Computed example of a mutant assay.
Amino acid sequence: MQQELKSQITKQHIVHEAFKLFYENGFKSTSINDVMKAAKMTKGAFYHHYESKQQLGLEVIEQKILKRIYDGMILPLTEPGNAMEILENIFINRIRSFPFYEKQHGCPMNNLVNEIGNYESSYQLALKNIVEKWKKALVVLIEKGKDQNSIKKEIPSEAVAIYLISAFEGIRGIRKLYDNDSILDQYISGLSLYLSQLKS
């Protein structure tokens, strides 16, 4: 039992360091040696816990990327209250809350989608699974808004959900090109206008 716990802690440490390197330098540019150097471990220790970089990549997606999206963008959608206000709070306030480091590096999920989304079917499936969870939670909230009469009943829920996800992920990528938040301010203005058109 003690050995199993130690093994889990070691794996979490490897995943944590790998996530940081993938985020800052890209998945393809990061080698197992880079991860082991950052984790202060030997390559033998890596292969004791993981068969390959691919397996490690999947754990990073499942343990780090999914958790970030779930905690920041999915779980808040399930809060009680006015659906339209929840949408506004999450999509407008969340974009404002990112620290400078994250504005510089973009969204970890979006980065991986762009870099390896079509590189390996297992990655594609893992990343798509996150998007589908996010979309499903948004559809539930939008339908709730229709029931509350805060969102127009004729609004196509899935189309709105995908649009909101795409716009949010897109601006996180575009923000990396700029050295200030003016582009975010323009995005927020456009998003506010779009959301106002959904209100009943």
Score class of each variant (00 low, 15 high):
residue 100 F to P: 04
residue 110 N to L: 14
residue 140 V to I: 13
residue 44 G to I: 02
residue 134 W to Y: 15
residue 19 F to I: 01
residue 40 K to I: 06
residue 88 E to T: 12
residue 53 K to H: 02
residue 124 Q to F: 09
residue 19 F to A: 09
residue 89 N to P: 06
residue 128 K to Q: 10
residue 34 D to A: 04
residue 18 A to W: 00
residue 113 V to S: 06
residue 148 Q to V: 05
residue 140 V to R: 12
residue 81 G to L: 06
residue 147 D to I: 05
residue 73 M to H: 14
residue 136 K to Q: 12
residue 56 L to M: 01
residue 93 N to S: 15
residue 127 L to V: 10
residue 80 P to I: 06
residue 148 Q to H: 14
residue 31 S to C: 00
residue 82 N to V: 13
residue 42 T to H: 11
residue 144 K to Q: 14
residue 61 I to K: 03
residue 63 Q to L: 03
residue 99 P to L: 02
residue 110 N to H: 14
residue 74 I to E: 09
residue 119 Y to G: 05
residue 128 K to W: 07
residue 130 I to A: 13
residue 99 P to E: 02
residue 30 T to R: 03
residue 139 V to Y: 12
residue 18 A to C: 01
residue 130 I to E: 04
residue 87 L to T: 12
residue 32 I to Y: 04
residue 83 A to H: 03
residue 19 F to T: 04
residue 119 Y to V: 02
residue 128 K to G: 08
residue 126 A to N: 09
residue 24 E to F: 03
residue 129 N to C: 02
residue 90 I to R: 13
residue 107 C to P: 09
residue 72 G to V: 06
residue 133 K to Q: 09
residue 90 I to W: 12
residue 128 K to D: 09
residue 62 E to Y: 08
residue 21 L to M: 01
residue 40 K to F: 09
residue 44 G to S: 11
residue 108 P to A: 14
residue 109 M to W: 15
